[in-house]
Computed example of a mutant assay.
Amino acid sequence: MHLIFGLGPIGGNIGERLAELNREVFGFDLAPARVHEWAAATNAPASSDLARVDWSAVDSVIVAVRTADQVSSVFRSLQECCAERPLSVFVVSTLAAEDARRILPSGPDSWRVFEAPVSGGPHGARHGTLTTFLSGPAPTDAEERLLADISGRVFRMRNYGDAATVKLLNNTLGTYNLLSTAHMLNLAQRAGVPAKDFLEVIRVSSGQSWMSDNFSEVQYDLLLKDVGLLRGEVGSLPATDLSGDVEQVILQARGLLESEA
């Protein structure tokens, strides 16, 4: 049985996806209303009380909470319930790299803990098309099948913290794209071009990005959280300045790609 720890937009939709595939799932969340809604949507058991979980049936846990402190709390709760049992633990929460390196190795030796932050939002979680950044042990066949059910693509990394770094870099780039789109929409409006009309132009031309395609639905609060985590790790982020040496920056990055080919 798969225990979904956190029934928010990502965890709840992953759980719905697995239930739809006829996998046995149990949903847990501290919010009773969220538990009720998820149970009604999936026709699967759910609770805000861990005592109602049949721990003898649990073989994997998907942790989809928001903060590092919450992940640590989940680990403590799991250790109280099944410290001696074999368990595959997938932490899809986005952590700072330092927190991933600190928290994830703290599980019992009987656990197989995977750092598995995801990209693709609630839609990707619901339809099994998430991009998953994976660090941890080599997955077993059963773990590979679970990953295949929730992911469209899995990028594999060696060490705890690597997956977090890649996810944070990706989301920070997405935030740059989102902010740039917003700047251009505001500028278009000031120049006399309706912002709604210009967004349609962006979506079919060179300014297009995932962020422009989903501009009105993006959960920017989560992106800003990830930007803060990356800034805490690297210290400062590049400033986009079109009056600077744009060509040098572009050629330097292209050179990196060519040297790694």
Rank of each mutant, 00 (worst) to 15 (best):
P137M: 06
H183N: 12
S119W: 04
V74L: 12
A96Y: 04
A97H: 09
V65E: 05
T131C: 11
V63D: 02
S259L: 09
G107Y: 00
S77Q: 15
L78T: 02
L134H: 00
G27L: 07
R203L: 04
P9C: 09
R101Q: 14
L21C: 11
R101M: 12
R17M: 00
A261C: 09
A44L: 00
H127T: 15
N170Y: 14
I14Y: 08
P139T: 01
P139I: 05
D245H: 05
F75H: 11
L21A: 14
W111R: 02
F133I: 06
G161T: 08
G12D: 08
V35H: 03
P86L: 12
E80A: 13
D29G: 03
L178T: 03
L222S: 14
S106F: 00
G107D: 01
A138Y: 07
N177V: 00
N13W: 06
P45T: 01
I10V: 12
S60A: 10
F114E: 01
L21D: 12
V91I: 11
N22A: 12
R254F: 13
E260W: 14
Q189R: 13
G152E: 12
A142N: 09
L185N: 05
G232F: 08
F75T: 03
S205Q: 08
V53I: 12
L185C: 05
G12K: 06
I150N: 00
R17C: 08
S180V: 11
T129C: 07
V218N: 12
L222Y: 12
R153M: 12
D197L: 14
G8N: 07
G244T: 05
W55T: 04
K167Q: 01
E84S: 14
I62F: 06
L169V: 10
L87V: 01
D69E: 14
Q189D: 13
T140V: 06
L230E: 00
N159D: 15
P194S: 03
A182H: 08
Q79T: 01
M157H: 02
W210T: 12
D149Q: 13
R203Y: 04
M211Y: 04
D59R: 10
E84D: 15
L30P: 02
T181F: 05
K167P: 00
V204H: 13
T42M: 11
E217M: 14
E247V: 10
A191V: 00
S209E: 07
N170S: 15
P137G: 01
S180M: 14
G11Y: 02
A19N: 05
E260Q: 15
R190W: 03
P117N: 09
S77R: 13
P117L: 09
R23F: 11
G232L: 10
A51Q: 13
S119C: 12
Y160W: 03
W55C: 01
N170R: 11
D213K: 10
